[in-house]
Design a protein around this nucleic acid. Structure first.
Length: 863
RNA sequence: GCGGGCGUGGUGGAAUUGGUAGACACGCAAGACUUAAAAUCUUGUUGCCUUUGGCAGUGCCGGUUCAAUUCCGGCCGCCCGCACCA
């Protein structure tokens, strides 16, 4: 909701003028441009670079504010700080914009970049803009074409068939997000799965390393490490080969529960399992079922949330351990071809999904694990499968063993009798990098009828993406281009065609952090010396939504680049901070349409639409999104209140990893604080000592307390910034500001402490409100840039307190507080505590059973 | 469906390793200043009650402990990711 702002122009702090002035000063002094310097400790701060979607949004403001605080703080703390920015410029939205607004993706992207660059500059971010990169330019993507060819030489690249979402009306491949309820988002046509030959990067070659190295990422959030671990999904189990009755081939399944083999009552295969495909010709109903499965699209979420369905193929397998027993083979929509062998055996008693399936299709449920000591006959299975440990029953030679022992015993048996073996499986799949899209990096490959697949020679790189394309037609514009795809085969010289697929845009973002080390270098995108100096990124900051894919691909890329000799780093990001979303209230008009906050005003406590005057309803607070229109444009906020106010608000209340709710009142609170600081320095000169005045010998009690608080605040804020507790740092600086304002004494000591205090506040707030801090620093008589000024130090001797205020509990309930000498012994504490009136009253003559005393923390008298 | 997370006053949040729940703000109320308003300043502000005190209270139910927002078990609600959005 936009309200009349307390006319900021009227304030004597001229935000706009001051912010532009300091931005110009930083730029002209080049104070954020860096070079490798082995004499200084390096610190590489990186925020996830933005997709140039048009204008910056509040999520960017939050992300880049967080990074800027870290960068400025580390610079002040004496590090050689690299803090770059660039553009993740390839991607689908540019093509959508091309279709919707008839503008070329290149033009659209470059214009967006120009707009967003100016917007970022207005935020006063401490970037080394000389290192700016844009991934859609050949100067950038030529390097990844070479990397791809190098990966090929290292056997990290291969080609295989894989499934895509196919829109039969538009004749294009759809992204998962373009498939809505199984239909194409534009055409509305039922989406089909199609098989295409595509390029893959062998990320699974590094599965074990990517998994075990998670332990070394000690400055990553635990939850992200856990998500990566689960994504890689290493499991230990077995492959089992089943003989199919009256069939030449065998059915191989992967299972993590070989111990439950005696409880198997069916086998199930994926719809696109070769066996299922081979049966289609004779079974039209099966074909129909498989088509139905294919209509679910390629998204795992869609497949797994669909109703579990199966189709009995009529084929049966022999149970390998029980003579004469057979199990039916179903095609099931919940079995994934990409996991294990694309086939399972179902043991309904000990797997919930199998149980649901068995109940639905009337299959037997045989419990094979029971509680210890239970009578096998009494173990029954209800609605819930038993996945607990226990003792094997109804399982022949496995009976009586626990689950772990049974697993190992049965695998030995499988191996001895040659119908199965121990197996390790990963959930992680190889990374498919082919995209049938225009706005991406061309894959440097030529297809020759005679020579097959031929890499483009390095001397002919880059393969430049043509800009004269027709985007209005169906299909891939590169394929439709009249000349581009025709090339001579590098090997035999005959006419051949280029690969018309482009790379997944995760390709660009998997190595950009390395390019920032030395952009513009010709060879490989960066020099090894620069990469080895700057990498890994010391602190990476971005959204939790990238917790798995982008981060995992980048980790893989670093390893692959190392394998190719590009750099020495093992991990790309030593530290990771994930930020929460920026949320806002939603508003709806009487017709149910979403209303922009800027179109809502408050009239006598009722929110109404500014133009129509009709009442709007306030909905729940949600992530800012264009569709719900609950967005606030950063540009307007910066124009009105200045970047520092927006930055302070972003940092003030919510910790970085939590969601933040944008509120006008919160912004105004930040704005008021900015003005308060300004007044404190520019209107409080009279009560402050001159710069450089000698430390006075005598200070009053209150003055001493404020002086000590200054040192304590430096210590606390430093620690808070080290731990990224920006909201706490802000609270502490505000506390110090309050104390300075409330310092009533006015003598030499107080005047000296006032100067010291305001200088301290200015320096501490510097990373968060850099423009205002420069203004204050100047106002305090300094000629140098605060951006070049070292972080303040504190005197540890002033932090020591000699007595501590402690709570006194009786039976766990607070009855009094008492000031005790620091580290005082229990006898002294007891003596003092028992004298307290409230304590005596609470004990009320009862026997003291225990006197709990934790020095400097708590006293608890148990009666 | 699977994986991960979050939940504390009217609101955002704070609370070392289990040790005085509500720091710092926002909002609100009262007051000061002002012709008036804005700005600014002061005071109060978890709820309830019999109000110099007491009881309850950190999504819900239970457990461990002298002591639980914090640890354990079970629920509920919301959010993020699920491999072609970035």
């Amino acid at each position: 909701m936009t309200q009349e702002i307390g006319s900021p122009e009227a304030s004597r702090y001229n935000v706009k003028e001051a912010e532009q002035r300091w931005q110009a000063q930083w730029e002209s002094s080049s104070c954020f441009e860096v070079t490798e310097d082995s004499s200084l400790p390096k610190y590489y701060v990186l925020e996830m670079f933005p997709y140039p979607s048009g204008r910056i949004h509040m999520g960017h403001v939050r992300n880049y504010t967080l990074g800027d605080v870290v960068a400025r703080y580390k610079k002040a703390a004496g590090f050689n700080v690299l803090h770059p920015m660039g553009w993740d410029a390839f991607g689908l939205p540019a093509e959508n914009a091309a279709i919707e607004n008839n503008v070329h993706p290149a033009k659209w992207t470059r214009e967006n970049i120009a707009t967003m660059r100016e917007q970022l500059k207005s935020m006063g971010l401490s970037y080394d803009w000389s290192r700016e990169i844009s991934t859609c330019e050949p100067e950038y993507y030529k390097h990844e074409q070479k990397m791809f060819l190098d990966f090929m030489k290292q056997d990290l690249v291969y080609r295989k068939e894989s499934w895509v979402n196919w829109d039969p009306v538009e004749n294009t491949v759809l992204a998962n997000e373009q498939v809505i309820d199984g239909k194409g988002w534009r055409s509305g046509a039922l989406v089909e799965k199609r098989k295409l030959s595509q390029w893959f990067l062998r990320i699974t070659a590094y599965a074990d390393d990517l998994l075990s190295a998670i332990d070394t990422l000690d400055r990553w959030p635990d939850r992200v490490r856990l998500m990566q671990e689960n994504w890689i999904g290493r499991s230990e189990g077995a492959h089992i080969q089943f003989d199919i009755v009256d069939h030449d081939e065998k059915l191989e399944v992967y299972t993590t529960r070989p111990d439950t083999l005696f409880g198997a009552s069916f086998c199930a295969i994926a719809a696109n399992h070769p066996l299922a495909q081979s049966l289609v010709a004779d079974q039209p109903e099966l074909n129909e079922f498989i088509q139905e499965c294919n209509r679910l699209g390629t998204s795992e979420a869609a497949i797994e949330t669909a109703e579990k369905l199966g189709f009995d193929t009529g084929l049966v397998v022999k149970h390998p351990l029980e003579e004469g027993k057979t199990l039916p083979i179903y095609v099931a929509n919940f079995v994934l071809m990409d996991y294990g062998t694309g086939a399972i055996f179902g043991c309904p008693a000990h797997d919930q999904r199998d149980l649901d399936f068995a109940r639905k299709y009337g299959l037997p449920v045989i419990p094979v694990v029971g509680p210890k000591g239970a009578d096998p006959a009494s173990v029954e299975v209800g609605d819930e499968a038993n996945t607990d440990d226990g003792v094997l029953i109804n399982s022949g030679f496995l009976d009586g063993l626990n689950v772990t022992d049974a697993k190992s015993r049965i695998i030995d048996h499988l191996e001895e009798n040659k119908f199965g073996e121990r197996a390790i499986n990963y959930r992680l799949r190889d990374w498919g990098v082919s995209r049938q899209r225009y706005w991406g990096c061309p894959i440097p490959i030529i297809h020759c009828d005679g020579c097959g697949i031929v890499p483009v020679p390095e001397s002919e790189l880059p393969v430049v993406l043509p800009e004269d394309v027709d985007l209005s037609g169906a299909g891939n514009p590169l394929d439709a281009h009249p000349t581009w795809k025709h090339a001579d085969c590098p090997t035999c010289g005959k006419a051949a065609v280029r690969e018309t697929d482009t790379f997944d845009t995760f390709f660009e973002s998997s190595w950009y952090y390395a390019q920032f080390a030395s952009p513009g270098s010709e060879d490989v995108g960066f020099t090894k010396e620069a990469a080895d100096y700057w990498l890994p990124v010391d602190q990476y900051i971005g959204g939790i939504e990238h917790a798995v894919l982008h981060l995992l691909y980048s980790r893989f890329f670093t390893r692959a680049l190392k394998q190719c000799g590009y750099l020495e780093a093992v991990e790309p990001f030593a530290g990771l901070m994930t930020q929460g979303m920026v949320c806002h209230q939603t508003f709806q008009g009487t017709d149910g349409r979403w209303v922009f906050p800027s179109d809502v005003e408050d009239r006598d406590g009722t929110p109404v639409h500014i133009k129509t005057g009709e009442t709007v309803t306030i909905g729940r607070t949600e992530k800012m999104s264009k569709s719900k229109r609950n967005v606030v444009d950063p540009e307007g906020i910066i124009a009105t209140y200045g970047a520092d106010t927006a930055r302070l608000f972003m940092l003030s209340d919510s910790p970085p990893d939590r969601d933040l709710e944008w509120t006008d009142s919160g912004v105004e609170g930040a704005w008021r604080y900015a003005n308060r600081l300004w007044r404190g320095v520019f209107q409080g000169e009279a009560s402050r000592a001159e710069r450089g005045a000698a430390v006075p010998g005598d200070m009053g009690e209150q003055t001493t307390a404020v002086y000590r608080l200054c040192h304590k605040t430096i210590s606390d804020v430093s620690r808070d910034l080290d731990r990224f507790h920006f909201n706490k740092a802000v609270a502490r600086i505000r506390e110090l500001t309050n104390a300075l304002d409330n310092l009533g004494e006015d003598n030499d000591g107080a005047r000296w402490v006032r100067r010291f205090g305001w200088e301290t506040v200015t320096r501490l707030i510097g990373p968060m409100m850099p423009h205002l801090a420069e203004e204050l620093w100047h106002g305090l008589g300094h000629e140098t840039l605060l951006a070049d000024t070292p972080w303040p130090e504190f005197d540890a001797s002033l932090l020591v307190e000699d007595s501590i205020e402690m709570g006194v509990q009786v039976n766990g309930k607070l009855r009094a507080t008492v000031s005790l000498p620091k580290d005082c012994d229990q006898a002294t504490a007891e003596a003092i505590v028992y004298e307290l009136e409230n304590v005596q009253k609470a004990i009320d003559g009862k026997d003291v059973r225990k006197f709990v005393y934790v020095p400097n923390r708590i006293v608890n008298v148990v009666v």
